[in-house]
Design a protein around this nucleic acid. Structure first.
Ligand code: ZN
Length: 473
DNA sequence: CGTGCCGGGAA
DNA sequence: TTCCCGGCACG
């Protein structure tokens, strides 16, 4: 059949703390192998498309930014933002993937969606869960505003249907990067401060409050409250930079999109904007936290990243080392920069552009990079050879940071799976020879990744002792 | 041996 | 369908 939606399961292993705010949990909760487009929109929400009409559908409910609700995917540039004003507005616009000066991409990937479509309550829940999970990212386990019961760790929640990937175009002109992030109020600027948003950063901080609560009331099931008390105040002291890890390159850019473009063009020899990615591109770059303060405006050579946004181009940074290299499978990578010394947990998530994949999107790896956080990547693969590659725009990048020490007491999950990204190396074609029948994939499967003790984290396939569908070869 | 997972098979 | 497992072929 065709209905083998993503598994949005709240890992029951999170025990009493239910979906914890850590990134890992997102992974666990977002096991998805959906065949329908799934991508992070500029708001950091996961979106997918309706099989039939190709409309987009939010996996999550509308956001509430600073108490003001952000409309759903706005058709016209000014739709949603109408609720906002000032810098907030700008930020939101960007968050929405729109641009203040530049009109949104012709055929924006964002197509107005009829509010609620045929979404089974179940599906809805999943979405909500996904959303909640994402949201919870920024919530401290101890400060979780919602009652654990809200997220009954029910494994049986999996739904939505998959469908033909819809295509949309979104020229990846690194402008309107819809990166977003959030973190808690804390404003202290520490050297190891989380990466400040890229281009737009004005109103990108918010902290979720109450995830979802029920299924019946889908509309308000998920509410993300961004109650950042001090929206515009935060002056970023650090900036996230992306460093190319390719052999003797080390180029540093200010956006993951730019970096990927760089890699794509320079190292992979691909056509510039023609993201003809077939879902198997290897981007090797890592994230850096750069202290912006120290960096005046004397920028050096860099690739233009955000037309509209005034993001200081990147420039080689000493060694603000952060997370180990991360392999960005197809397009999205989450790296974890440094930890933060905020009293509360601080989670930072940012995405560059809307990320869109056409086919099964699945978290392919979880890696605990630093004590302060971990990263993971999302990968997808073409369902069929001719499936339209809808992957447009630049990939996103999520970063999760959690304070070390503070909420360090992770809910459950004994030892998290650690997948160390392999180091870049010329894309050699390891194509030895195949003699036997069972090539035995090399990729670590759920079993090995999560371990027997965390069986409930495995993908269903693995649990059924079937071919793993999360870590496909 | 542990792993991945096919091919049953039960609920 | 969902779920489980015997058992075998891999490393
Ligand atoms: Zn698996």
């Amino acid at each position: 059949m065709g209905t083998q939606g993503p598994e949005l399961i709240s890992s029951s292993t999170t025990g009493g703390n239910l979906l914890c705010p850590f990134i890992e949990d997102i992974l666990l909760s977002l096991r998805t192998t959906s065949k329908s487009p799934l991508y992070f929109n500029g708001q950091g929400l996961l979106e997918t498309a309706e099989p039939a009409n190709g409309r987009l559908r939010h996996l999550t409910d509308p956001l509430v930014l600073n108490g003001r609700k952000v409309e759903e995917r706005p058709g016209p540039p000014a739709a949603a933002p109408s609720l906002l004003e000032g810098s907030d507005k700008e930020a939101v616009l960007r968050l929405l993937g729109l641009d203040l000066e530049q009109s949104p991409p012709p055929q924006s990937a964002y197509i107005p969606v009829p509010r609620q479509r045929k979404l089974s309550g179940k599906a809805r829940i999943d979405e909500v869960m996904a959303a909640a999970v994402l949201t919870s990212l920024s919530t401290s386990p101890l400060v979780l505003a919602n009652p654990p019961s809200a997220f009954s760790p029910e494994p049986g929640c999996e739904a939505w249907k998959d469908g033909p990937a819809m295509s949309s175009s979104y020229s990846s002109s690194s402008n309107n990067s819809g990166d977003w992030s959030w973190d808690l109020p804390s404003d202290r600027s520490t050297p190891s401060t989380p990466s400040p948003p890229l281009p737009s950063d004005a109103a990108k901080s918010f902290l979720p409050a109450a995830p979802l609560d029920d299924s019946t009331e889908e509309t308000e099931a998920t509410h993300f409250l961004f109650g950042d008390p001090i929206p515009r105040k935060r002056k970023n002291s650090t900036k996230v930079m992306f460093k190319c890890l390719w052999k003797s390159c080390g180029k540093v850019l200010s956006s993951s999109s730019g970096m990927q473009k760089h890699i794509r063009i320079v190292h992979l020899g691909r056509k510039a904007d023609l993201d003809q990615s077939d879902g198997e591109e290897d981007f090797y770059y890592t994230e850096l936290d750069v202290n912006v303060d120290s960096l005046t405006d004397g920028l050096s050579s860099l690739t233009p990243v955000s037309p509209t946004s005034s993001v200081p181009p990147a420039f080689p940074v000493p060694e603000v080392q952060t997370a180990p290299p991360l392999l960005v499978k197809p397009e999205v990578s989450l790296v974890s920069p440094l930890s933060h010394s905020a009293p509360t947990n601080l989670c930072h998530v940012q995405t560059d552009h809307a990320y869109q994949a056409t086919a099964p999107v699945s978290i392919s790896a979880v890696s605990k990079t630093l004590p302060g956080g971990l990263g993971f990547s999302i990968s997808w693969q073409q369902p069929s050879p001719q499936a339209p590659v809808v992957f447009k725009g630049s990939p996103g990048c999520l970063t999760a940071i959690r304070p070390v020490g503070v909420g360090d007491k992770r809910p459950q999950i004994p030892h998290l799976p650690v997948i160390k990204p392999h180091v870049p190396a010329a894309p050699a074609a390891p194509k030895p020879a195949s003699g036997t029948r069972k090539p035995r994939g090399e990729a670590k499967k759920c079993r090995k990744v999560y371990g027997m003790e965390n069986r409930d984290m495995w993908c269903t396939a693995c649990r059924w002792k079937k071919a793993c569908q999360r870590f496909v070869d």
